[in-house]
Design a protein around this nucleic acid. Structure first.
Lengths: 199, 199
DNA sequence: AGTTCATCGAACCGATCGGTACGATCTATG
DNA sequence: CATAGATCGTACCGATCGGTTCGATGAACT
């Protein structure tokens, strides 16, 4: 909760608290599924405060999405980094991290992709694009360290597995989706590293 | 357009025309992005007619999604069937068909997944689940004909590629996404068929 | 002590939402 | 020619939407 009444010690703290508290609600119910009034009520914040900080509901949404993208990127990058030096282990760790995420009861798919599916033209799509870019950077690094011939290409194929696993986990509800995706990812990595492909 | 004024020769024709015309509009702008009033105006249909046929906006949405799922399934199954007897060719044909879809200017991702991303608890999610089931059936058949040890498992990995490619094509906008997915799918099929995996 | 300013709470705005009701219109049927 | 029924167009409903405004409150700075 963002303080009580009078002047907060730090307005930036209020802003951060709003972003943090609004995130889960918007994620769970969808952007169009929560009105500003209810949002403020749940956050314990007045509309005036919200609009002074973000100007617009979309402004808040963008801030929330940016924060979430940052956090997801932190998770996956940390998981990969903690997996040691073997690129295959790093790749496996990324999918294991995704698997933990899928198992959370609040899991509802990728927030950025969900948002882009309902806000079409908007800057929301730009945030989603940057989110995928960051995934791609992580995967490209792993692919490059694995010494494959075409790291960018492999990374793009792995990105499809990441997002595809997220979609399937969210909408098809089978338990070991992440494990299946991990298998597939390792197969792709191994095949490309050993030059097994070229059909 | 559903006829002119008085009693139509066939009310079922009117219903079908509404479903067909509403589909693209809801797909392009999103379910919450088009009001019933505008929807009726574009369709050349009165609200009373729409509500008599579908009862609810959600009723129309469900009918539209069912129809689209049917059509997508028809496309991909036909593409696979037209590719001959080789399961690898059939798999490649599925991704080629997806590639043609991605290239359409109206392409906005998987309508069922998009809808499920904004309508949470609803029967919409059931339609989406059935849609993924049908994809899975198609892919399982191909995997089984390829003689792999675990057709269901491979099919689930391929399903992630299908949905992942669709998400990436919709939100990352790189040209040859479907071709990349096709490469990955064939790699998975080949690896599993030749028993190259087992890490 | 007094000024400043972030905040609250609630009233308020016009617009739009999904959904209903009704009288008029037209076609098909008998 | 009369009846039945599908349709149109429009007006209307209450609810909710995103957003604005304002007076009161209270902490921080001078």
């Amino acid at each position: 909760m963002p303080v009580a009444k009078g002047a907060t010690i730090d307005p930036a703290r209020t802003r951060a608290a709003i972003v943090e508290a609004a995130g889960p609600l918007l994620y769970e119910r969808g952007i169009d599924g929560v009105g500003v009034a209810e949002l403020c009520a749940r956050l314990g914040v007045s509309k005036e405060t919200l609009y002074r900080h973000f100007g617009t509901k979309d402004g808040l949404v963008l801030a929330v999405l940016e924060a979430r993208s940052e956090r997801v990127h932190g998770w996956t990058a940390a998981a990969a980094a903690a997996a040691g030096d073997d690129p295959a282990d790093q790749l496996a760790a990324v999918f294991d991290a995704l698997g933990e995420w899928y198992r959370e009861p609040e899991f509802r798919g990728c927030a950025m992709v969900n948002a882009a599916a309902q806000h079409h033209d908007d800057p929301v799509r730009a945030v989603t694009g940057r989110h995928l870019d960051r995934y791609l950077d992580l995967l490209t690094g792993i692919a490059a360290r694995a010494g494959v011939a075409d790291p960018e290409g492999l990374a793009r194929r792995l990105l499809m597995l990441v997002e595809g696993a997220t979609v399937v986990a969210a909408h098809h509800g089978v338990a070991d989706t992440a494990a299946q995706a991990r298998e597939a990812a390792l197969t792709l990595l191994t095949a490309e590293r050993d030059g097994l492909l070229e059909a």
